[in-house]
């Protein structure tokens, strides 16, 4: 008998992290821990976390971590990485953090081709602050600040960050994944590993966008939210590789 799947040592052994039941933040931090362990990079890595529910993981993860002001993680990571290139630096940001207040920092860091990794969690809502509309909120989706549902003429359209960054020359790798099925979880793990490997190889800016659910603020239970994710979020945000320079003839 052999242990084929064990809990990553990169999260606190006994701690129950504060995410809601079914929240995939937990899944992604599990995957990040597994990849860091597998690649042996934990002792020279640093997390620059944005502001949002993800901050609940700060005490949960066991490697170096800092908090950026809301929206500024890509700028903070620029400073950390450029002044200490030997460290593997990654940001972990929600859709409000990365695509709303931090859109400028995200675009500019991507455009400079900063050699760090961005983990972007897209759940179409502001979680921590209680369900406000985000740049990725779907048309017709209700939010505490769009009580009648998002309307294009008033609130514009959901933003497709991988595709937007794909207009820039510098980014090296952009992939959109999800954690809604075991197969997709494994693809997400692979994407995170690839993004870290790009950084180790000095290839420049990599972003993994992970489409997730927010049961609490979608007003659904975990499994209903999973269905909403598949029937609606994944239609608006199709999964797949948007750019992978390693595949292009170089």
């Amino acid at each position: 008998m052999e242990k084929v799947y064990s809990r990553t040592r990169m999260i606190q052994e006994k701690m129950v992290v504060g995410f809601c039941p079914g929240c995939m933040h937990g899944t992604v931090f599990k995957l990040i821990g597994e990849v860091m362990e597998e690649m042996g990079i934990a002792d020279h890595s640093a997390l620059v976390i944005g502001v949002g529910c993800s901050g609940l993981a700060l005490e949960y993860v066991r490697y170096d971590a800092t908090t950026a002001p809301h929206g500024r993680a890509c700028a903070v990571a620029t400073g950390v990485k450029r002044s200490n290139p030997g460290t593997i630096v990654f940001t972990y940001q929600g859709d409000g953090d990365l695509a709303s207040i931090g859109l400028g920092e995200t675009m500019s860091a991507a455009n400079r081709g900063e050699n760090f990794t961005v983990i972007f969690i897209n759940n179409g809502i502001y979680g921590m602050t209680g369900g406000q509309m985000a740049p990725t909120t779907l048309l017709g989706m209700k939010a505490t600040t769009a009580p009648f549902g998002r309307k294009a003429e008033e609130h514009g359209y959901p933003m497709h960050m991988c595709e937007i960054l794909n207009q820039l020359t510098a980014p090296y790798y952009l992939e959109r994944c999800s954690c809604n099925t075991p197969a997709n979880v494994m693809k997400t793990r692979k994407a995170i590993r690839k993004a870290f490997q790009n950084q180790i190889d000095g290839k420049g800016f990599s972003m993994v966008e992970i489409v997730t659910s927010c049961p609490t603020n979608w007003g659904l239970d975990a499994l209903e939210a999973l269905r909403f994710l598949e029937e609606n979020m994944l239609k608006e945000f199709p999964l797949g590789v948007i750019r992978d320079r390693s595949k292009e003839a170089n």
């Binding site: 799947y5 992290v17 995410f19 937990g26 979880v185």
Partner: peptide
């Protein structure tokens, strides 16, 4: 693979 809490070992 699915568990968000890394609560399952196999």
């Amino acid at each position: 693979q699915m568990c968000p809490e890394a609560a399952i070992e196999v």
